[in-house]
Write a protein that binds this DNA or RNA. Sequence first.
DNA 1: CTGAAAGCGCTTACAG
DNA 2: CTGAAAGCGCTTACAG
Lengths: 341, 341
Amino acid sequence: MARDNAQRKHRVSMLDIATAAHVSPSTASRALNGHPKVSDEARKAVLDAAEKLGYVRNLGAASLASSQSNTIGLLIRDVGNQFYGGLASHVQAETDRYGFDLLLATGGDSVESQMRAVRNLLGHGVGGIIIASGRVAAQVADYAAKFVPTVVLASGLELPSLNSVRIDPQMEAKLAHIVVDHGHRNIAVTASSDSLASALHARIANFLTELIVAGAETTIISLANDDTDIDKKIDEVLDSGATAIMAGNDSIALSVLEYLDSAGIACPGEVSVTGFDGIGPYRSSLFGLTTVEQPIDKLAHEAVKLMSRHLHDESPHTSQVLVRGRFIEGRTLGSVRGSAN
Amino acid sequence: MARDNAQRKHRVSMLDIATAAHVSPSTASRALNGHPKVSDEARKAVLDAAEKLGYVRNLGAASLASSQSNTIGLLIRDVGNQFYGGLASHVQAETDRYGFDLLLATGGDSVESQMRAVRNLLGHGVGGIIIASGRVAAQVADYAAKFVPTVVLASGLELPSLNSVRIDPQMEAKLAHIVVDHGHRNIAVTASSDSLASALHARIANFLTELIVAGAETTIISLANDDTDIDKKIDEVLDSGATAIMAGNDSIALSVLEYLDSAGIACPGEVSVTGFDGIGPYRSSLFGLTTVEQPIDKLAHEAVKLMSRHLHDESPHTSQVLVRGRFIEGRTLGSVRGSAN
DNA sequence: CTGAAAGCGCTTACAG
DNA sequence: CTGAAAGCGCTTACAG
């Protein structure tokens, strides 16, 4: 209680507690790690001493000595992004359940910064890495996989050499199909000009494939990262006769809705809009956005489960897991005038 | 390129690169750390070898040996929360600028889980800890501060013994004042029944103080964490004559707006609503929410700056930094009928 | 400018 | 069940 406050220098070490508990460092270590072959006496003495002295285990030293690690790293592109932030939150919950410690690192948009983040995680001795980002370069994932078990989560990357967990592409096809079923035959799809945006690219590709197969005419709205030009581009596709806009995600859909609102263009009266992700405020009934909900809880669950298997078993084969999403019926998708619903 | 893929066991160590570069480990270490007193020859040889061999420095071992650390830890309650997620993202950007590595840990709602997160960070040898959470127990912050420099960010905690950075409470007062200026005299304020929600508590207290001083009548809407009962509570305060509801943050404000919308109660016609935070989709013109924008970029900037000072200087005194926010005029705050605006 | 040596805090065969 | 000892990968006075 009444301790000097400038004494944050000397951290109490395992040796300190071994001494206090009158046992050897070996026994202290074993007791602290819940090793079975320790007498109850010894265990209690050690645990009490640790508690009393406020011991904090030096994880770096521990994993150095054991060349094992109980902590897994999560590389996230941007926790400021509602979807990935939510995903991270669920991954946290899952690793908790499994008893792993979680270390998050965020890697910006460049390959370089992602590499740095991975190296940072690796440097801290994580036993495995989960990469949750719509913008991973395959090269970053490959690099990580060279060192520790790696699973790529909710990204567009799906190489046979990589473990991955993502939403079933069926959902993307299904959404496209639903739009067509509403009578739309001229449909604009937003695309990203960012080469790293693999999740978006994969999604758009799935949309387009389905639309084309269904015989719809498609237009692409190419968006840069912070596109301020979106208004003009929307006007253009509208002029060219598009009756629906399928946005790559809810955030983009929201930008579209905002523009339509400001321009006095009725939605879905004049043009329908769909999103993707279905997370947080984007789900608000006030928006009424027609979208697909990505099951971030299940995605996180599968990712950690897969990681756990790789950490424990020797199963050296990689796997690609798909989880189902859910269609959210909103008010922004309407039927084309004069068509059957 | 064509390496065996099962060989992820042996990581290349500094010794490997020292050998490859024909120098001693000492020199290798110095070269890698950018130590000035190394010949250009040696430095180049080492750096080349490191690059070629794909060296990843073991940060744990490094900080173990030097008892120093260049990485700082960020404890975040929930990155799934738009505000804290965004804040984390900015903190990341700032630590990058300063050349720190960042490790994130998320601590759930309980003191216990927060403690665990802090211990985890500490165990990984971080040199300092930033706690960004609206729900920190003072005890957690105190604990962290016992070991490393600690700054509490955007929380309600503001003890003289703790470094803190938060939005100027003036902004909270100002918002309350603006509401009164719109002629409202009977105002409901949402409050949280969660004892850990210090940021919310501080905010509510500031609202109430200002409202009471301004002579308004106030009612408190007490909300549990996942309150499903919010509808009834809103009805009650409306029945009792409230003409405005000041929500503790935008997310709560959104819930209120959704209910009003579903119940067909006009906003701001029959009742005005304000939020707080002003981040991301909550800022959408489609909501038109009247709120206050927290300057997360500045908050992050000040927090990291403060941390940096504590890491480098010896300045042992703690400081409390306040940054200004910005009032966002939306459409959800209206004037009371028959009052001056 | 460079190396040999000791040590950071832990774990883990190895021998009791 | 327990301890002495060696070693994990690094850094840093200390002596050249």
